[in-house]
Nucleic acid binder design. Structure first.
Lengths: 242, 242
DNA sequence: TAGTGGTCTAGACCACCTG
DNA sequence: AGGTGGTCTAGACCACTAA
């Protein structure tokens, strides 16, 4: 037996998806629903809360609750560069993990000054023995903090940054694009210059919007796909079990 | 003055981000929090509900509420092929919008039989006069349904499908990869075969998991980037105003 | 002024888990 | 048996909006 607040939410979804309630329409007021379902306000609100969070309605104080069309242009995607590899530790080859003076581009990206140093991490990622991606990451080097652990090559970027610098990275900005392989990357990936690559650029920011990590993953085009699904679908499942 | 339940949520977040409560730790029980904040259970639960939905904690019936690390590998992304164009109707050139017998590949993708027909839509997308992408979409043709409206070339795919077929597409599966332009696409995009493209493949599914739309967008690599951000960041903003 | 949503109370009962 | 979270009640007061 499902709880009453959940039934109310389901009923409303049915009315919306069935076309009985159209976007812009006002739902029955909370007090109406209370009498309709012979229940109390908190229970009704718990039900409507589900729909509101899933994006099916918007409540306006003093006016009412109104139907909205859920959005299908918001996508949810999972990305962890370590997922490329087929099972841990086999799939990663650590090429470099050192402290260096950053190139101007990196210095700029991380908002550093002349004397700051960065940790650079270069890795090759494999899918079941097949070379799939060349990964390069930069983090500001913090004096006195322990640098490198045994497993550093296997942990995802956000966690890596967390271990060295800030405890939490609050924002992960990802840019995805296609590009032709240049001389250097092509050599790393054992392919020919000009071949198409999927490039995934990551920028981690602290709570104060300070850059605390930056890097790129160059993926061979035939080894790597990103999959996304409408965020609405995720929310429907999580919040409403539809 | 912010509501009490919101203060409770903020306090807990502080304890978590401050390291006082670590992942796996049990939060004070609801009754403890009731006395701590001199409030009633529903108010405490309203506060904890915020954190639970944002992924900071998980409640286990009979045991307690436990701290979880928020995930930074879940990304949120906005994608609407119409967003490529710089301002509506200028940026789209409709090449074709007809009813055809589908090729086997399309037939397969849409789960159709021999006699079914599909609507095919081919378009070029421009960013301020510059050619950016070649877009091709397929939808099952439903007899008797009105086919094409004046604005069909400008509305996003999900809405387009909604107008012709099912009222709601519930799931939008998107695949992103890089590829070299083949002869045909290269000609469309006025580029040379082999040049790198960002390919965005969309598959729309009905509530019954039936495919109701499929298509690809071939983007010139220097015109198109996708941007994503950690979903956690979105949720923190939406649910907690952090 | 009457209706709306937003917050909150002080209880209740239940199912679940642990000792 | 005692503690936990999950559901629910029957009210209350508030701020807001509209007529």
């Amino acid at each position: 037996m499902q709880p009453l607040y959940y039934c109310i939410a389901e009923d409303m979804i049915k009315r919306i998806k069935g076309g009985e309630l159209k976007p812009g329409d006002m739902l029955p007021s909370e007090s109406q629903l209370c009498t309709e379902y012979s229940t109390s306000k908190m229970t009704v609100r718990q039900g409507l809360g589900l729909l509101a969070r899933a994006g099916y309605l918007r409540s306006v104080p003093g006016k009412g609750s109104f139907v909205e069309h859920p959005r299908y242009d918001m996508l949810a995607m999972h990305f962890d560069e370590m997922d490329i590899v087929g099972g841990y530790p086999q799939g990663v080859k650590l090429l470099q993990a050192t402290i260096v003076d950053p190139k101007p581009q990196v210095q700029d990206m991380l908002g550093l000054t002349e004397n700051d140093k960065v940790i650079v991490l270069k890795r090759l990622l494999y899918t079941e023995k097949q070379l799939a991606a060349y990964d390069i990451k930069y983090m500001p080097y913090i004096k006195g903090k322990p640098l490198i652990e045994k497993e550093i090559q296997y942990i995802p970027f956000a966690k890596m940054v967390a271990k060295h610098g800030e405890l939490f990275s609050v924002k992960n900005e990802v840019t995805i694009y296609a590009a032709a392989a240049d001389q250097g990357v092509a050599a790393m990936l054992e392919t020919s210059p000009g071949s198409p690559l999927l490039v995934i650029e990551q920028k981690l920011l602290s709570a104060e919007q300070k850059p605390i990590g930056w890097g790129k993953t160059y993926c061979l085009s035939d080894c790597m796909q990103l999959h996304a699904v409408s965020a609405q679908f995720i929310q429907d499942k999580k919040l409403l079990n539809l």
